[in-house]
């Protein structure tokens, strides 16, 4: 996995973020990991602040249930934005409602993982993300557009 890829975690729960980060690090991921507390902030920073994205690739880990702008809305807006549509998105959420899973896949999420309460399973899930990161090619965002 390339060094200049940043992992963005849209997660309103600080505890969840902490557990995600711990386990990503334990799985050997040493890229920069940033957290955004809600979807609005996430979107604003991605869409408005495009100066420092020249050399970077992004991977987004997205929670569905968030205040202000929910995960599905973030996905929709990303897919409508020609500059950001290629960002791989992993949905990591408590919701296992088949309807929402289907919507996320329709909107083109790369992976959908239900947050298991059972911690061992949770660790497994995060490791899956680690594996995913190591095999995919993350496109750079083209700032010319």
């Amino acid at each position: 996995m390339r060094e200049n890829v940043e992992i963005l975690v849209a997660e309103d729960d600080e505890g969840h973020f902490s557990l995600i980060r711990k386990n990503l690090v334990r799985a050997g991921i040493d890229n920069n990991i940033f957290r955004f507390a809600d979807g609005q902030k996430r979107l604003d920073s991605l869409i408005l602040n495009n100066k420092d994205t020249t050399e970077k690739g992004y991977l987004l880990i997205l929670d569905i249930r968030m205040p202000k702008v929910g995960g599905i809305e973030v996905l929709e807006k990303l897919r409508l934005n020609s500059r950001l549509r290629k960002i791989p998105v992993i949905v990591l959420t408590t919701t296992d409602d088949p309807k929402e899973v289907a919507i996320c896949h329709t909107l083109g999420c790369s992976m959908y993982i239900v947050k298991p309460v059972e911690y061992d399973n949770y660790i497994d899930a995060i490791r899956k993300i680690g594996q995913f990161l190591s095999i995919i090619e993350i496109p750079q965002i083209d700032t010319e557009q």
Binding site: D13, G15, H16, L19, T94, K115, Y122
Partner: peptide, 17 residues
């Protein structure tokens, strides 16, 4: 039932930690 699971993830996770 969704929102209540969220803290459970933390309780379980951090108790394991």
């Amino acid at each position: 039932s969704h929102d209540l699971r969220s803290p459970l993830v933390n309780i379980q996770g951090f108790s394991r930690e």
